[in-house]
Design a protein around this nucleic acid. Structure first.
Length: 476
DNA sequence: CCTGGAGTTGTCCTA
DNA sequence: TTAGGACAACTCCAG
C-alpha cells in the first residue's frame, strides 16, 4: 500500500464534482480518498426515509462512476468509520461541506475535534447554502422571524453568493483496497419490495441529470414560471428539489443560471424562482437558529392545541389518497407513485390534514419524510409548521384551503386529477372535482360507483372548517 | 422612541 | 355577478 499522504473528501449532501469546495481543496493537496458514509447510527429518528434512500442509491452510483469506481462507501457511525480510516491509512487531511441538521452539526464538531487531536488537517466548507445562517441577522443581532425582511434586506443586502467553482481535474484517487469499505448493495438502500422501480421511472438522477434539468428549466420554463407554477398539471416548476437536497447541483449554480436567464429573457419568472431558493435558505436559517423546529412548535402558543387523536383508518385514507376529495387524493397518490408532489398540492393536502382532519402536523411531516425524494429536514419541518400556523411567518389560522375551490381554480380541466385518479377520468372535468355531487346518471355513465371505485368524501368541509376555526381561535 | 404600513400561496359573506 | 372587507396578532422596518 502506498504511503503517500491522502486527503479524504467526505461526501454527504453534495454528491457532485462541480462547485464542490471540499473536493477542490482535497484535490489540490494530491491523492484523494473520496468517501460516503451511511450513518443511521447518529441520525436517530431522522434517518433517511424510503424514497430518499432509493434516490441516494442511484445518486451514489452516479457519483461513483464519475470517480471511475473509486468512491468508497461505508455504513455506521461516521466517527468510528473515520477513526478506523485514520488508523489504517496515511491520512493528512479530511475535508467536507457543511450540513445543518442539528444531529449532523453535533456529530461533525465531535469528529473535527477528534481528528484535530491526531494532527490531521480538517476543514469544512459551504456548498449547500447561498448565505450561511450565522451571516444574516437583524440590526440587533437576533435572527429574522419573517421571510420578506429576511430575504429582501438580510439576504439581498448581504454580499452576493460566491460564483460556482469548476470541477477539479485530474482526480487522482487511490486504487488500493480500503478497510471497512463496502459495495453499494451492502448499504441496502433499495426497498425489499419492488415499488421503487415505477418511482425511479419518473426521474433522471445524478449530477449530469441535475445540470440538464436546470438548463431545461431555465431555457424553456422559467419565463412562464410566475403564472405556471401554481398549476399541478403543467410541468412549470423546476423539480430541482431532490437534486438540491442531495447536492447533485448547488444553489449557487441555480442562482446564477437563473440570473443569467433574467438578463437574457427578462420577465419576472427568474425573480420568483430566486425567491423560492430564498425560502429554501429561510428554512435552513430557521433550523439552524431553532434546532427544535422538527419536533417543537416554533410558536409555543400551539403547545396547548387540542388536536384529534389519529384514528388509524382516517390517517391511512389520507396517506393512501382515499379521502374522497380528488385533489387531495391525486396529490397523495402523486407522492406515493413518484416520490414528489407539486407545491400547490402539498399545501392543499397539508391544510386538509391539519385543518379539516384536525391532526397534528407531525403526522404529515412523518409521512412526507418517508415518501418524498426531496425530504429535507429543514424544508419539511418549516413548511409543515407554516401550514399549521405554528411556524415562522405562518399562514393565519383562518386560512383554510377549500380543496374543491383549489381544485377548480388550479386544475380547471381536471387533467391532474385524471392523471393520478384515473378512475375519475371518464367523468367530465367539471364533475371530476366533486364526483359525489355528479349525480347518479353521470356516475353510471362513467361506470363509477362511489364507495366501490372511488370513496365517498370522508368528512364534511363546512363543519370541519368551522371546528378548526373555533379551536384555532381559542388559542389566541 | 414611537407609529404605521406591510407581510408567499384563502375563504366567505355582504352589498 | 363581482368586488371588498373581515377574519388576529405579531414581526420587521422605514420614517
Amino acid at each position: 500500500m502506498s504511503s503517500q499522504p491522502l486527503s479524504v473528501v467526505w461526501f454527504r449532501q453534495d454528491l457532485r464534482l462541480t462547485d464542490n469546495p471540499a473536493l477542490r481543496a482535497a484535490a489540490a493537496r494530491g491523492r484523494l480518498l473520496p468517501i460516503y458514509i451511511l450513518d443511521d447510527d447518529n441520525a436517530g429518528e431522522w434517518a433517511m426515509g424510503g424514497a430518499s434512500r432509493t434516490w441516494l442509491h442511484r445518486s451514489l452510483d452516479s457519483l461513483d462512476r464519475a470517480f471511475d469506481g473509486r468512491l468508497r462507501l461505508f455504513r455506521g457511525d461516521a466517527a468510528r468509520v473515520i477513526e478506523q480510516l485514520a488508523e489504517a491509512l496515511p491520512i493528512s487531511a479530511v475535508y467536507w461541506n457543511r450540513c445543518y441538521e442539528p444531529w449532523r452539526i453535533e456529530r461533525d464538531s465531535r469528529i473535527k475535534k477528534q481528528l484535530g487531536t491526531r494532527g490531521i488537517d480538517v476543514e469544512s466548507f459551504n456548498a449547500s447554502l447561498l448565505w450561511e445562517p450565522w451571516e444574516i441577522s437583524k440590526g440587533d443581532g437576533s435572527p429574522y422571524r419573517v421571510f420578506t425582511p429576511y430575504y429582501q434586506k438580510g439576504c439581498l443586502g448581504a454580499p452576493p453568493p460566491g460564483q460556482p467553482l469548476p470541477a477539479p481535474a485530474p482526480l487522482d484517487c487511490i486504487d488500493d483496497p480500503v478497510p471497512g469499505s463496502v459495495g453499494l448493495s451492502a448499504l441496502e438502500l433499495l426497498p425489499r419490495l419492488d415499488w421503487h422501480r415505477d418511482m425511479l421511472a419518473h426521474w433522471d438522477i445524478g449530477e449530469d441529470a441535475a445540470a440538464a434539468s436546470l438548463e431545461g428549466f431555465c431555457t424553456d420554463t422559467l419565463n412562464q414560471y410566475r403564472e405556471g407554477r401554481d398549476f399541478p398539471a403543467l410541468q412549470a416548476t423546476s423539480r430541482l428539489s431532490p437534486h438540491l437536497h442531495f447536492g447533485e447541483i448547488s444553489p449557487r449554480q441555480a442562482w446564477y443560471r437563473a440570473e443569467q436567464a433574467a438578463l437574457e429573457t427578462g420577465g419576472d419568472g427568474p425573480a420568483h424562482f430566486l425567491r423560492e431558493l430564498g425560502w429554501r435558505e429561510f428554512s435552513y436559517y430557521l433550523l439552524y437558529h431553532f434546532p427544535a423546529l422538527p419536533r417543537q412548535n416554533f410558536n409555543s402558543k400551539f403547545d396547548g392545541f387540542d388536536w384529534l387523536e389519529p384514528d388509524s383508518t382516517a390517517l391511512a385514507a389520507w396517506q393512501q389518497g382515499l379521502t374522497g376529495f380528488p385533489i387531495v387524493d391525486a396529490g397523495m397518490r402523486e407522492l406515493w407513485q413518484t416520490g414528489y408532489m407539486h407545491n400547490r398540492v402539498r399545501m392543499i393536502v397539508a391544510s386538509f390534514l391539519i385543518k379539516n382532519m384536525l391532526l397534528h402536523w407531525h403526522h404529515g411531516e412523518n409521512w412526507f419524510w418517508d415518501c418524498l425524494v426531496d425530504a429535507d429536514l429543514a424544508s419539511n419541518s418549516a413548511s409543515w409548521q407554516w401550514c399549521a400556523g405554528s411556524g415562522a411567518d405562518a399562514a393565519p389560522y383562518f386560512r383554510i384551503f377549500n380543496p374543491l375551490l383549489q381544485s377548480q381554480k388550479f386544475d380547471p380541466d381536471g387533467e391532474y386529477l385524471a392523471r393520478y385518479c384515473p378512475e375519475l377520468a371518464a367523468l367530465e372535468p367539471k364533475w371530476r372535482h366533486q364526483p359525489s355531487a355528479a349525480g347518479q346518471q353521470r356516475l353510471d355513465a362513467a361506470g363509477l360507483k362511489l364507495g366501490r371505485d372511488y370513496p365517498e368524501p370522508m368528512l364534511d368541509l363546512k363543519t370541519t372548517r368551522e371546528r378548526a376555526l373555533a379551536r384555532f381561535k381559542a388559542l389566541s
